[in-house]
Computed example of a mutant assay.
Amino acid sequence: MVDVARNPVHVTVTGAAGQVSYALLFRIASGQVFGPDQPVVLRLLEIEPAMKALEGVAMELDDCAFPTLAGLVLTSNQQEAFDSASWALLVGAMPRKEGMERGDLLSANGGLFGPMGEAIQKNAASDIRVLVVGNPCNTNALIASGHAPDIPADRWFAMTRLDENRAKSQLAKKAGVPVAEVSNLAIWGNHSATQYPDAYNARIGGRRATDVIGDEEWVNGEFISAVQKRGAAIISARGLSSAASAASAAIDSVKSVLDGTPEGDWTSLAVISKGEYGVPEGLVFGYPVATKADGTWSVVEGVEHSDFAREKISKTTDELLQERDLVKHLLP
């Protein structure tokens, strides 16, 4: 039952007429994310040419008659979009297409996120949290957060949960178990083809995943490659980038921050590094993160790595440093 006396949570979604948002908005509006008793106002940002399509999305949201949907704001104005927002889901970005180089994505999207950071700092609620979904999400988050210096660093996240979900599915299939049996799966580094999905510290039914699977060649080869290249494989198969799975991962990310991770487990989030595991400070880096229901979180310490893992983590770190160098002109 919706508590109409509760103040609504204002949630900004950018690129709100796009594929990922179309798979995302109805689940937020239905109460799946913030709870069945929490009213939500969706603040939907689009570029001017897409406003007509956004109106159609809004009509469908209205037609669902969700009790938890307390209001809709449709706008192409960033200041209005982020006004009073407690959560900002930065979904909008140029979609990756088959054959597109990562540098092309950086050039196309990097300039969008500085102004967004400024608008968030100026207009959002004091409890704002930001999840960057639009790719290249790590470096887009780096740019946006750099333009919002008054917002605490622990409020910024980039989405590596899709990679975690993909990796869990691969491990579950290989082991012949339900995906719910897989835990402690960390994605280290960049949401890119250099990311390191860590099967060695993952668990299947409480046991080390590599012991359950018993196929080191597969773990070090096909498994990592399948996770790293899954996005490209989906583009090749359907001609479009991941949408429903990306939306589901965004919801998982928000709920992990809101609800907390199970005791002894963690989730994968890219956060602003404080130097953990030797990663340079300031990079937005994928780590295993333990969260609490009060909204606090921490990078899990003490995870052990083999030489193989350290090499993989070094490679993805180098890529993020290269990306940072490529967008230096966009940083304050």
Rank of each mutant, 00 (worst) to 15 (best):
N7M: 15
V11N: 01
S21E: 08
S21I: 10
Y22I: 10
A23R: 03
L25T: 02
A29R: 04
Q32Y: 00
D37C: 05
V40N: 09
L42S: 09
E46D: 05
P49W: 10
A50I: 00
A53M: 11
G56V: 04
V57A: 04
D62A: 00
T68V: 11
V73T: 11
Q79W: 09
Q79Y: 06
W87H: 04
W87N: 06
A88Y: 11
L90S: 12
G103M: 05
D104G: 11
F113R: 02
P115R: 06
P115A: 12
M116R: 03
M116Y: 10
A119R: 03
D127H: 00
V133M: 07
G134S: 12
N140Y: 11
A144I: 08
G146T: 13
I151G: 07
W156V: 01
F157I: 09
F157H: 03
M159F: 06
R161P: 00
A167S: 12
Q170N: 06
Q170D: 09
G176T: 07
V177D: 09
P178W: 07
A180N: 05
E181F: 12
N184S: 10
A186P: 02
G189M: 09
Y200T: 03
A202Y: 10
R203Q: 15
I204G: 03
R207G: 00
R207H: 14
T210K: 04
V219F: 14
S225Q: 13
Q228C: 08
R230E: 15
R230S: 14
G231V: 03
I234D: 08
I235M: 15
A237L: 08
A237S: 07
A237M: 11
L240D: 07
S241M: 15
A244L: 12
S245N: 08
V254F: 12
V254S: 06
V257R: 08
V257M: 08
L258P: 02
G260H: 09
P262R: 01
G264S: 02
T267N: 03
T267Q: 14
V271N: 03
I272A: 10
K274M: 06
K274N: 13
G275T: 07
G275K: 01
G275Q: 06
G275Y: 08
E276L: 05
Y277M: 10
G278L: 10
V284G: 09
G286K: 02
A290F: 03
T296Y: 04
S298E: 15
S298V: 06
E304V: 14
H305C: 04
D307S: 14
S314M: 05
K328S: 14
